[in-house]
Design a protein around this nucleic acid. Structure first.
Lengths: 229, 229
DNA sequence: CAAAAACGGTTGCATTTGCAACAAAGGAGA
DNA sequence: TCTCCTTTGTTGCAAATGCAACCGTTTTTG
């Protein structure tokens, strides 16, 4: 466990807490780890969930399957990120989504009830933890709003560009390694894979992106977007 | 103010608190009201916001304008609902959205800092208030996820049907009065207004919806959806 | 009351998209 | 190495969508 303390210290949930305190808090939060292989299901739709997950290694996808079998990737998270943090505080019993490990992953689970309940006098960090939890959920809220904006774009091209810009901005690199293969990217942007492939090909021929496998490079600044459509 | 106490008691923020306590809490939270006329701007994109809003009367729309001028209605709230509750806890200074009153509205503002700060010993309700605040934000999180799912639908028809079903389910009526005119509905579903109008016309001719102005009736249960596409 | 603005529907047309089927390329395992 | 399976790109085609323009109706406003 010690191995992951530096990572945990950097997560939003443990912000402003000291590394040496986190260890003792984890016990207080009934923490346990579990490993998942690629494609392994962490939670299935309809399950009852009372804990939050933190990605220690690997990546997870929060997914929802339509009645018609069409699949949408709601969110995707890598190391240091929390997931399923909103269900318990919202009073949701059966979660409306499934969560998968998209690659071999190691997940840390924390008892949600313990996070928001002031335990005993000696655990003085709880109020900080609650504040942090609120911040985590609030930030996720903003991320979801950005996602809504992305999905509101009218064309595949705009969705791709918006997504690339956002990734570029957050990673601060021009070359970005997407956490998706083409199928997953299409499910994330909510478009048809082959149609997306066609648009990607057009954009490549026009010289505004280049890519190889899941590594993309954008030869267009956001400021140029006026010329892109 | 007393006039609105019954409404406030029913809001998620004051859940499990007694009506007579809410009055004194409002002072503690620096509460003040303001009235807006139809179309009045409550906050503009880029403004600094440290308070949360509660709709007392009327309706508000949280909106974001694209660079190209295309407009998307992120969320829409009526009496009893909170808005802008995520910015302050997320540490956002300049809000990335605008908020309008879509009809004549009366808004109650609460100082966010005061909500999450344990004030003094005599205000014993604060921990309940913080728990409630977390629940509010978490629930909104789920609502945003539903919105993402809606926008993930591939056709205007599916978006319309999903929206109608959701409205029907939450209002528990077959006839639903939408809080949108056609332009706004299109901006909410992120589609072209005239294209939407065309699809609505088709659906009407097929007999699966009827509508007059903003009152819609759906002659199709969700279970029938297999036949609808 | 009259003019202006807002609203909602319609239509033609070019483009985009979804869908299905197939082909090429790459990887994993026997 | 060969085979099988997954991934990615391509293509034809019908259908859906965005866009722009226009028109009739309703609502607002001076």
């Amino acid at each position: 466990m010690e191995k992951y303390l530096p990572l945990l210290k950097k997560t939003a949930l443990f912000e402003e807490l000291r590394e040496e305190d986190i260890g003792s808090m984890l016990k207080c939060l009934n923490a346990y780890q579990k490993e998942y292989k690629e494609g392994g299901m962490i939670w299935g739709e309809g399950e009852t969930v009372g804990s939050v997950g933190i990605v220690l290694e690997g990546r997870v996808q929060v997914v929802r399957e339509d009645v018609h079998g069409s699949r949408i990737i709601l969110t995707e998270w890598g190391p240091g990120n929390l997931f399923a943090e909103a269900f318990a505080p919202a009073g949701i019993k059966e979660i409306p989504v499934s969560v998968f490990a998209s690659v071999k992953s190691r997940i840390l689970f924390l008892d949600f009830g313990r996070i928001i309940t002031q335990c005993s006098a000696h655990c003085v960090f709880h109020s900080q933890l609650i504040r942090n939890m609120m911040r985590v959920i609030a930030r996720k809220n903003l991320i979801l709003n950005q996602r809504i904006e992305l999905l509101g774009k009218r064309s595949i091209r705009e969705k791709l560009l918006s997504y690339f810009w956002a990734e570029q901005k957050s990673s601060k690199r021009t070359r970005i390694a997407l956490p998706f293969n083409r199928n997953e990217l299409a499910d994330y942007l909510c478009v048809d894979r082959s149609a997306m492939s066609r648009v990607l090909g057009q954009m490549r021929r026009e010289g505004i992106v280049s890519f190889k496998k899941n590594v993309f490079e954008l030869h267009l600044k956001e400021a140029d977007s006026g010329t892109a459509f």
